[in-house]
Design a protein around this nucleic acid. Structure first.
Lengths: 352, 352
DNA sequence: TTTAGCAGTCAATGAATGCGAGTGCTAAGA
DNA sequence: TCTTAGCACTCGCATTCATTGACTGCTAAA
């Protein structure tokens, strides 16, 4: 049974009120704040219906109602009004992100901290998935015998490096032979197609004796693969301690443990984004997030783009009780700024 | 007035008991747990004295006593028994730190996480102060026109790099001229003696026109200086949420905010260590740490060494109510392991 | 100097109470 | 059939109060 107009109105009003007060919403306060043309008794009846249908919950008899996950879902899907960011807020974000960043990492860190500051919640920024981007350069620079800096340059203008040890009888000449042949054999190949085998066959061209080669192949391969690691910048976790939702220490502890565990959040957001390639923003509410410790939270994430195939994510983790429309508009704004900066970086790098 | 023998015994017993129970210690429970040959009344008299002398505090009349900062200080300075780490615990630490680390950062991260796991408190590891170590190499590697990777190698075997932008009309040849002359002009110089001026005068030798030079000097200088940045690895902050001391959410928030603020903890520990060069370990208790948000905590830190002049710190931040002797022995043990690993790294790098 | 004994203090606990903010239900009115 | 006034009912919450018990400090005797 679909919700009729009035039920929708009431649900919307309840979510709005609950978001701003954090208190269960009563029928009386509802008709006072919003001018429904009906009495509180009517609203009560509707609320009872909504509860029965699963959109609302009642912490205890004789208390007001609170939206359920399903209620929030209905709200974000079809009830909420889209918020426009005020010029002032827009300017604030823009100016905080107006430095010209030379590096992706710097830009994303700043984007994340800005987002957290603006929303008051936990923010996150994920480096792009680079599987589709290709290897542009591979340099190996001998720091001293046995110690080599492997520098990987990707098409997206991303530079990563890694200090490794190799047998110390390898000469700089041999090293540069090897790295040159790997580079020329693999440059232009998407990262996802590069394997230990392809690296090995490219390296063979160098004519360096195989016994020496083997010692260094794996390091080269690892350095390339490592360039594809997702990195997560998270900010503002402490803010969650101020929310009534987490005034209970053990809830806070479990939230913090979850957020601090490597890979949980980044993995979730990454998957979410891969499963919803077409969506501009993704919202996941409470139990929809099947991660222990985050069941009282909501995710609002979006995708930024570098060129047309490479994409990363930014987003916010907050209490279910958040101003979704505002958060969405804040995130969208930050995304725009990032996209612009990315384009600038792209020009700078002469295309991806 | 110095403490007589019995007062010392009683103070020691009170600290021991309070550390293990987190409850104010009563005269009665004291004589039950320890076999003083006197009655509780006598102990009460002594406790009243100790309170008057500032070693104890009473949360309210008719409650037991709690050690004051001064009490803890007396305890750690002259009362506590030195604890020996059990073989098992020692082995555990050793095995967790037995991987051969190629990099300082990896070693320190692992040391920090081990320390936090063993103690149950917040751990920290600070990279070495490198002001006394000297520049060994400076390489500039052109990734593409306008984009350069500056690699700094220090005598301690530490490699840091930094991606910078330069004017894109600079040729690779000019670049290598510049970096070569900076390197040969400055290598062997302690970091603390390198300034923008010395970099500039070294670079002049390259014969590259000054208008080009200026564009890149600053980047080179910054890269060198940045190699000296203290980095802090902190672990286990969430554990603090389980302590009764921080069951109050706003105390937890203020602690977390302090710990998360860049530079506060690292700056404090660094200064502490510089001011106490001869000390093997340093303990700071409660108000002795003049940092807001840490006044309910204690620091226990020690210094590890790389060669004889270069040193960094590891340590623990926990509640004042901690088993100091145990924590000290845990930290000392970790320090030993680090020192050994450092020596291994030193061999590997052919001396510092 | 020590200690038994006792009076005094205070936090913590739990029962009793009233309050008030809510609801659900009913019956009358539109 | 929908709406609504009215009322009984529920329940959390704050307040009060008395009780308990874990302490102490003090006193006076050993």
């Amino acid at each position: 049974m679909p919700l009729d107009q009035r039920k929708k109105q009431i649900l919307q009003a309840i979510v709005d009120d609950y978001v701003s007060t954090a208190e269960p919403v009563a029928s009386n306060s509802l008709i006072q704040r919003h001018d429904f043309r009906v009495s509180s008794a009517t609203v009560r009846n509707e609320m009872a219906d909504l509860e029965q249908m699963g959109y609302l919950e009642q912490p205890h008899t004789s208390s007001g109602r609170v939206p359920s996950d399903k209620g929030y879902r209905e709200y974000v899907d079809s009830l909420m009004r889209v918020d426009q960011l005020s010029d002032e807020e827009g300017e604030q974000i823009k100016s905080r992100l107006s430095d010209s960043f030379d590096e992706l990492a710097g830009l994303l860190k700043k984007a994340s901290s800005t987002l957290s500051e603006q929303t008051g919640f936990v923010s996150l920024a994920l480096t792009p998935r680079l599987r589709k981007s290709y290897l542009k350069q591979l340099k190996m620079m001998m720091i001293e015998p046995g110690k080599v800096l492997v520098v990987v340059v990707l098409s997206a203008g991303i530079v990563k490096d890694r200090l490794v040890r190799i047998p110390d009888y390898l000469t700089p000449e041999q090293l540069s032979l090897i790295s040159n042949s790997i580079e020329s054999g693999l440059s232009g190949k998407p990262l996802e197609e590069i394997t230990l085998v392809t690296v090995a066959s490219a390296a063979k061209e160098s004519q360096v004796p195989e016994s020496l080669l083997n010692q260094i192949l794996y390091e080269a391969y690892t350095a390339i693969k490592q360039a594809d690691n997702l990195e997560l910048y998270m900010d503002g976790t402490n803010r969650m301690l101020s929310l009534p939702e987490f005034s209970n220490i053990s809830k806070a502890r479990s939230l913090f443990d979850t957020l601090a565990t490597d890979g949980i959040v980044s993995g979730y957001v990454n998957e979410l984004s891969m499963d919803n390639e077409r969506a501009t923003y993704m919202i996941r509410i409470g139990q929809e997030i099947s991660i222990e410790g985050l069941s009282d939270c909501s995710f609002v994430t979006t995708t930024y783009n570098v060129g047309d195939r490479i994409a990363g994510n930014i987003g916010v983790i907050g209490p279910k009780r958040m101003e979704y429309s505002k958060v969405i508009s804040q995130i969208s704004f930050v995304r725009e700024v990032i996209n612009n900066q990315m384009n600038r970086l792209k020009e700078l790098n002469g295309g991806f």
